[in-house]
Amino acid sequence: MEIQLNKTEQLLTDNRALINEARSFLEANGKRYDLSEWVTLKEYAKRHNLETISVVSNWINRGRIPAEDIIEVEELNGLKLIRDKVYQ
């Protein structure tokens, strides 16, 4: 039981460190992003009942989602985040 508790505590510590690292990166670019407003393409598709993330990718490529509503995090293998709002 104690070993499992130690593993859980270590996972929580590691997760906190990763979160802090991500916040540092976003703040290091001279802008501060409220991470509650930004989601991954997969999460956006899920929240807005879209069939696949391909729909969201196409919107980005066609400019339906404006550049100011997209963040690309190179340190996380080019992970894209978009502002969570309805796009027309």
Rank of each mutant, 00 (worst) to 15 (best):
I82F: 03
N15R: 12
D14T: 06
S24I: 02
R23I: 03
E74A: 11
N49G: 14
D14W: 03
N6E: 15
L11F: 13
E51G: 03
V56M: 02
N77I: 10
R83I: 00
L50T: 02
L41T: 08
Q88L: 11
E68N: 12
R64D: 11
W38L: 04
K80C: 05
K42M: 06
D34R: 08
S24R: 14
R64V: 05
K7C: 07
S57Q: 13
E9D: 10
E9W: 04
E37S: 07
I82R: 06
K42S: 12
R47T: 02
M1D: 11
L79N: 00
K46N: 14
T8G: 03
V73N: 13
Q88G: 15
D84I: 05
L79Y: 00
M1H: 08
N61T: 12
I70A: 09
N77E: 10
K31C: 11
A17E: 15
Q10C: 08
V56D: 06
I70G: 04
D14L: 04
L81D: 01
E72L: 01
T52R: 07
V55Y: 06
L35G: 00
G63Q: 08
G63S: 06
D14Y: 04
T40I: 01
R23T: 03
A22R: 15
R23A: 08
Q88E: 15
F25N: 09
D84R: 01
S54F: 07
W59A: 00
N20A: 06
K46T: 06
N29P: 00
V86W: 15
L5R: 10
E37T: 09
R64Q: 13
F25G: 04
G30W: 04
N58G: 07
L35F: 11
E2K: 15
A28D: 12
T8E: 14
F25M: 11
T52C: 08
N77V: 03
I3N: 15
V73D: 03
L26P: 01
N20C: 06
L35I: 07
A67Y: 05
R32E: 04
L26A: 14
E75T: 08
E2T: 12
R64P: 00
E21P: 02
I71P: 03
A17Q: 15
E74F: 09
N61V: 11
Q10S: 10
N6C: 09
R47Q: 13
E51C: 03
E51K: 14
D84S: 10
P66W: 07
S24T: 09
Y44D: 04
V86Q: 10
N29F: 13
G30R: 00
K46L: 14
L26H: 05
W59E: 01
L79G: 01
T8S: 07
R62H: 09
A28S: 14
N77Q: 13
I71S: 02
N15P: 00
Q10M: 13
L26E: 08
Q88P: 15
E27D: 10
D84T: 05
I82M: 06
E51N: 11
Q4W: 02
V56T: 00
I65D: 07
E51F: 10
